[in-house]
């Protein structure tokens, strides 16, 4: 569990967007994994199996969140008072300005494009595995992946991550 918890938390954050909720969902994911461990007979397939459980748990959470009212009604301009002084795990995680920029840009993508970036470019799943998980044709996943990367790069530029940030040009 210790080996996979960082990855699972990252996936959960990628789907739900809020760190506290992501940790709650990650707990739920591990409880589901514990309950269904007997169904994972091929250890080599553990990674995609875990990823599939994580994705389903995140989607269930998002469905429940849609169905219920917001958890808090504190005005947005007072929210900063609720934060503690020290760095949160998310702050530590997004340790560089580049990472923060990419994280924000991911938030601007459509759900399907963000999901494909999350599974392929962040978690490193193969296109075939993603196609199986999303129940989409391989060609569709491939074209969507290209489109998602272009959309993300465009979003990064729109947020100020252009050439003046010291990036190297494509050769």
């Amino acid at each position: 569990m210790r080996q996979e918890q960082g990855r699972v938390c990252s996936i959960a954050l990628g789907y739900v967007g809020d760190q506290d909720e992501a940790f709650d969902v990650a707990q739920e994911i591990f409880v589901r994994v514990w309950n269904r461990l007997a169904t994972c007979t091929d250890l080599e397939r553990f990674g995609p199996w875990l990823m599939s459980i994580a994705r389903n748990a995140c989607l269930d959470h998002l469905r429940r969140r849609k169905a219920r009212p917001p958890r808090q009604d504190v005005p947005a301009d007072e929210m900063h008072d609720l934060r503690s002084g020290g760095p949160t795990p998310e702050d530590t995680w997004l340790s560089t300005s580049r990472q923060r920029l990419v994280h924000r840009a991911l938030g601007n993508l459509s759900d399907i494009n963000r999901e494909i970036i999350l599974l392929k470019d962040i978690q490193g799943l193969a296109l075939e595995e993603i196609a199986g998980m999303l129940e989409l044709p391989l060609g569709t996943v491939k074209s969507r992946s290209s489109r998602a990367r272009t959309e993300l790069a465009q979003a990064i530029v729109d947020l100020g991550g252009g050439p003046d940030t010291g990036q190297e040009a494509v050769s």
Binding site: S10, G14, P89, Q99, V102, Q123, L152, Q154, E168, V170
Partner: peptide, 17 residues
Amino acid sequence: MAMSRMGEDLVSLAVLD
């Protein structure tokens, strides 16, 4: 340029302690 650079940024987001 953004696309050529974002690959390693995305990989660094793979784990959240």
